[in-house]
Design a protein around this nucleic acid. Structure first.
Length: 162
DNA sequence: AAGAAGATTCGCT
DNA sequence: GCGAATCTTCTTA
Protein backbone atom coordinates (compact mmCIF):
# COMPACT_ATOMS: atom_id res chain seq x y z
CA UNK A 1 0.00 0.00 0.00
CA UNK A 2 1.13 3.54 -0.60
CA UNK A 3 -0.19 7.08 -0.62
CA UNK A 4 0.77 10.72 -0.98
CA UNK A 5 0.95 12.61 2.29
CA UNK A 6 -1.44 15.55 1.86
CA UNK A 7 -1.88 16.79 5.44
CA UNK A 8 0.41 16.99 8.47
CA UNK A 9 0.69 18.68 11.85
CA UNK A 10 3.84 19.58 13.76
CA UNK A 11 4.32 18.85 17.47
CA UNK A 12 7.67 20.54 18.09
CA UNK A 13 9.82 20.43 21.24
CA UNK A 14 8.26 22.38 24.10
CA UNK A 15 4.72 22.28 22.70
CA UNK A 16 2.40 21.55 25.63
CA UNK A 17 0.03 19.51 23.46
CA UNK A 18 2.77 17.08 22.39
CA UNK A 19 2.77 13.61 23.86
CA UNK A 20 6.49 14.16 24.46
CA UNK A 21 5.99 17.33 26.53
CA UNK A 22 6.29 15.68 29.96
CA UNK A 23 9.33 13.62 29.13
CA UNK A 24 9.92 10.07 28.02
CA UNK A 25 7.38 7.35 28.87
CA UNK A 26 6.63 3.92 27.43
CA UNK A 27 3.93 5.48 25.27
CA UNK A 28 6.06 8.22 23.71
CA UNK A 29 9.60 6.79 23.85
CA UNK A 30 9.78 6.43 20.05
CA UNK A 31 9.46 10.21 19.72
CA UNK A 32 12.95 10.51 21.22
CA UNK A 33 14.76 8.17 18.80
CA UNK A 34 16.04 10.80 16.39
CA UNK A 35 14.80 11.94 12.99
CA UNK A 36 12.79 9.78 10.62
CA UNK A 37 11.37 7.09 12.89
CA UNK A 38 7.76 5.99 13.29
CA UNK A 39 5.89 6.78 16.48
CA UNK A 40 2.59 4.92 16.72
CA UNK A 41 0.26 6.00 19.50
CA UNK A 42 -3.14 4.65 20.62
CA UNK A 43 -5.74 7.35 21.31
CA UNK A 44 -9.35 7.61 22.47
CA UNK A 45 -9.44 3.90 23.16
CA UNK A 46 -10.04 3.15 19.52
CA UNK A 47 -7.59 4.66 17.03
CA UNK A 48 -3.90 4.60 16.23
CA UNK A 49 -2.01 7.56 14.82
CA UNK A 50 1.35 7.78 13.04
CA UNK A 51 4.01 10.39 13.73
CA UNK A 52 7.33 10.88 11.97
CA UNK A 53 9.98 11.85 14.49
CA UNK A 54 11.66 15.13 13.70
CA UNK A 55 14.45 16.03 16.10
CA UNK A 56 17.85 14.82 17.28
CA UNK A 57 18.06 11.70 19.50
CA UNK A 58 16.90 12.47 23.01
CA UNK A 59 14.59 15.31 21.92
CA UNK A 60 10.90 14.38 21.77
CA UNK A 61 9.05 15.73 18.74
CA UNK A 62 7.10 14.52 15.77
CA UNK A 63 5.04 15.26 12.70
CA UNK A 64 1.54 13.78 12.73
CA UNK A 65 0.46 12.36 9.37
CA UNK A 66 -3.20 13.33 9.11
CA UNK A 67 -4.23 12.29 5.62
CA UNK A 68 -3.11 10.37 2.55
CA UNK A 69 -4.20 10.35 -1.05
CA UNK A 70 -4.36 6.57 -1.63
CA UNK A 71 -2.17 5.38 -4.51
CA UNK A 72 -1.40 1.65 -4.36
CA UNK A 73 -3.19 -1.24 -2.63
CA UNK A 74 -6.51 0.55 -2.60
CA UNK A 75 -8.40 -2.74 -2.55
CA UNK A 76 -6.50 -3.77 0.59
CA UNK A 77 -7.22 -0.41 2.21
CA UNK A 78 -10.91 -0.77 1.43
CA UNK A 79 -10.98 -4.11 3.21
CA UNK A 80 -9.09 -2.79 6.24
CA UNK A 81 -11.29 0.29 6.49
CA UNK A 82 -14.55 -1.50 5.70
CA UNK A 83 -15.54 1.13 3.16
CA UNK A 84 -15.12 1.55 -0.58
CA UNK A 85 -15.28 5.33 -0.52
CA UNK A 86 -11.86 6.36 -1.81
CA UNK A 87 -12.02 9.77 -0.21
CA UNK A 88 -12.60 8.33 3.27
CA UNK A 89 -9.89 5.65 3.22
CA UNK A 90 -7.14 7.75 4.81
CA UNK A 91 -8.73 11.16 5.50
CA UNK A 92 -7.93 11.66 9.19
CA UNK A 93 -5.06 10.34 11.34
CA UNK A 94 -6.94 7.36 12.76
CA UNK A 95 -8.25 6.37 9.35
CA UNK A 96 -4.79 6.72 7.84
CA UNK A 97 -3.34 4.28 10.37
CA UNK A 98 -6.22 1.85 9.90
CA UNK A 99 -5.94 1.97 6.10
CA UNK A 100 -2.23 1.16 6.21
CA UNK A 101 -2.62 -1.43 8.99
CA UNK A 102 -0.34 0.65 11.22
CA UNK A 103 -0.31 -0.61 14.80
CA UNK A 104 1.96 -0.88 17.83
CA UNK A 105 4.33 -3.30 16.08
CA UNK A 106 5.53 -0.43 13.87
CA UNK A 107 6.35 1.85 16.82
CA UNK A 108 10.01 2.81 16.52
CA UNK A 109 10.53 1.58 12.94
CA UNK A 110 13.13 3.49 10.89
CA UNK A 111 11.14 5.10 8.07
CA UNK A 112 14.25 5.94 6.05
CA UNK A 113 15.48 2.40 5.38
CA UNK A 114 14.09 -0.93 4.18
CA UNK A 115 11.36 -2.35 6.35
CA UNK A 116 7.62 -2.77 6.72
CA UNK A 117 6.97 0.98 6.54
CA UNK A 118 8.99 3.72 4.88
CA UNK A 119 8.93 7.21 3.39
CA UNK A 120 9.49 7.42 -0.37
CA UNK A 121 10.03 10.13 -2.93
CA UNK A 122 7.17 12.29 -4.28
CA UNK A 123 5.36 10.74 -7.25
CA UNK A 124 4.35 14.09 -8.68
CA UNK A 125 4.84 17.74 -8.00
CA UNK A 126 3.35 18.92 -4.73
CA UNK A 127 0.57 21.48 -4.99
CA UNK A 128 0.42 24.71 -3.08
CA UNK A 129 0.67 24.13 0.64
CA UNK A 130 -1.82 25.80 2.97
CA UNK A 131 -1.27 26.50 6.66
CA UNK A 132 -3.72 26.55 9.54
CA UNK A 133 -4.10 25.94 13.24
CA UNK A 134 -4.12 22.33 14.39
CA UNK A 135 -7.26 20.21 14.66
CA UNK A 136 -8.69 18.64 17.80
CA UNK A 137 -6.57 20.35 20.46
CA UNK A 138 -7.69 22.80 23.13
CA UNK A 139 -4.36 24.37 24.13
CA UNK A 140 -1.73 26.12 21.98
CA UNK A 141 -4.68 26.78 19.68
CA UNK A 142 -3.15 29.71 17.82
CA UNK A 143 -0.04 28.03 16.49
CA UNK A 144 -0.11 27.65 12.67
CA UNK A 145 1.37 24.15 12.63
CA UNK A 146 -1.00 22.29 10.30
CA UNK A 147 0.04 21.95 6.66
CA UNK A 148 -1.99 20.58 3.77
CA UNK A 149 -2.06 20.40 -0.01
CA UNK A 150 -4.51 23.07 -1.10
CA UNK A 151 -7.34 21.80 -3.25
CA UNK A 152 -6.86 18.13 -2.39
CA UNK A 153 -10.11 16.34 -1.65
CA UNK A 154 -8.22 13.88 0.57
CA UNK A 155 -7.48 16.48 3.26
CA UNK A 156 -9.42 16.20 6.55
CA UNK A 157 -11.06 19.18 8.22
CA UNK A 158 -11.06 22.62 6.67
CA UNK A 159 -8.90 23.13 3.59
CA UNK A 160 -8.69 26.86 4.12
CA UNK A 161 -5.75 28.87 5.33
CA UNK A 162 -6.05 30.38 8.78
C1' DA B 1 -8.85 5.68 44.40
C1' DA B 2 -11.88 8.07 41.37
C1' DG B 3 -12.74 11.32 37.61
C1' DA B 4 -11.90 14.02 33.57
C1' DA B 5 -9.69 15.00 29.17
C1' DG B 6 -7.76 13.64 24.98
C1' DA B 7 -3.40 14.84 18.22
C1' DT B 8 -10.71 10.32 16.87
C1' DT B 9 -14.27 8.00 14.47
C1' DC B 10 -18.87 6.38 13.60
C1' DG B 11 -23.76 6.37 13.56
C1' DC B 12 -27.84 8.91 14.06
C1' DT B 13 -30.78 13.15 13.66
C1' DG C 1 -24.21 18.84 13.93
C1' DC C 2 -24.03 15.76 18.40
C1' DG C 3 -23.03 12.11 21.51
C1' DA C 4 -21.26 7.51 22.47
C1' DA C 5 -17.48 4.24 22.44
C1' DT C 6 -13.22 3.13 24.63
C1' DC C 7 -8.59 3.28 27.21
C1' DT C 8 -4.42 5.61 28.68
C1' DT C 9 -2.63 9.31 31.28
C1' DC C 10 -2.89 13.07 34.27
C1' DT C 11 -5.23 15.54 38.05
C1' DT C 12 -7.57 15.81 42.35
C1' DA C 13 -9.17 13.88 46.78
Amino acid sequence: MSGRIVETEAYPPGDSTSYAFRGRTTRNQAMFLGKGFAHVVFVYGSSYMLNVTSEEPGVGAGILLRALEPLEGIDVMERLRKTDKLRDLARGPGRLAAAMEIGPRLDGVDLCSDGPLWLGAPVRRTGRIGTSVRIGISREVDRPLRFFEMGSRFVSGRSTVS
